[in-house]
């Protein structure tokens, strides 16, 4: 539900999203070391592939977003990574739109970047169990943030969307729970198998 298509949002919302997205992606790219690009790009490809996998839960299935995990591992690079993935998704698969690309980037990457910035140092130091708890909580906050921002994008676009935007916000509840659980176990796994991956940002990702 995070991919808002073309033709739904109003111009002020679209322009705000595009401006914020371009700025954040530019900052994310500038902070990126030339040598880190293959690593960030291949991690972004893995996150993208994971988000395309539908977990068979409930009647249809849930697509993971893994925003919290992306924020923890990629830091500010989450903006260019999400931007590139959403661009490809819009162009190649037709999910999301071209004019709404900026809004969609910000809705997914901004909560992820904030959670990552706030929790990455603590997760890097913590024991696997504590890191799992922090990661799960961060994932829940990130998914909630995306849900609220998607909802707000609709709400701010037209008063006609008032009821729909509330529905969209509540529809994120299952995703928030699934994201928290899966990310918690995922952080615990990575902490035990390859802790450098979660400590990398402290060392500017020279894994």
């Amino acid at each position: 539900m995070a991919h808002i298509p073309d033709g739904v949002l109003s111009f002020p919302v679209l322009v705000t999203g595009a401006v914020v997205a371009v700025g954040a992606v530019a900052v994310g790219l500038r902070r990126l070391d030339e040598q880190q690009i293959p690593r960030v790009a291949i991690l972004a490809a893995a996150f993208f592939a994971l988000s395309l996998f539908s977990i068979p839960i409930g009647p249809s299935g849930v697509h993971l977003m893994l925003g919290g995990m992306m924020g923890l591992i990629l830091g500010l690079s989450v903006f260019p990574a999400v931007a590139a993935a959403l661009l490809l998704q819009a162009v190649m698969f037709g999910f999301g739109g071209l004019t709404s690309l900026g809004v969609n980037i910000v809705n997914i990457a901004l909560p992820a970047a904030i959670v990552g910035g706030a929790l990455a140092p603590a997760v890097a130091r913590a024991t696997p169990a504590r890191a799992a708890f922090l990661g799960g909580a961060g994932a829940a906050v990130s998914a909630l943030g995306t849900g609220l921002m998607v909802s707000a994008s609709l709400y701010l676009s037209s008063s006609d969307f008032a009821a729909s935007s509330r529905f969209v916000a509540f529809s994120y509840a299952p995703l928030i729970i699934v994201e928290a659980l899966v990310t918690g176990f995922c952080v615990s796994f990575v902490k035990r198998v390859k802790p450098e991956l979660l400590a990398a940002r402290a060392k500017r990702l020279t894994i």
């Binding site: 690593r39 994971l50 899966v182 952080v187 990575v190």
Partner: peptide, 20 residues
């Protein structure tokens, strides 16, 4: 959920090893 978390973790670990 643990299995899905491990699956995602394994994919990320493999991806960073592939990146290297």
């Amino acid at each position: 959920f643990r299995a899905y978390g491990n699956l995602a973790g394994m994919i990320l670990v493999r991806s960073i090893e592939r990146a290297e």
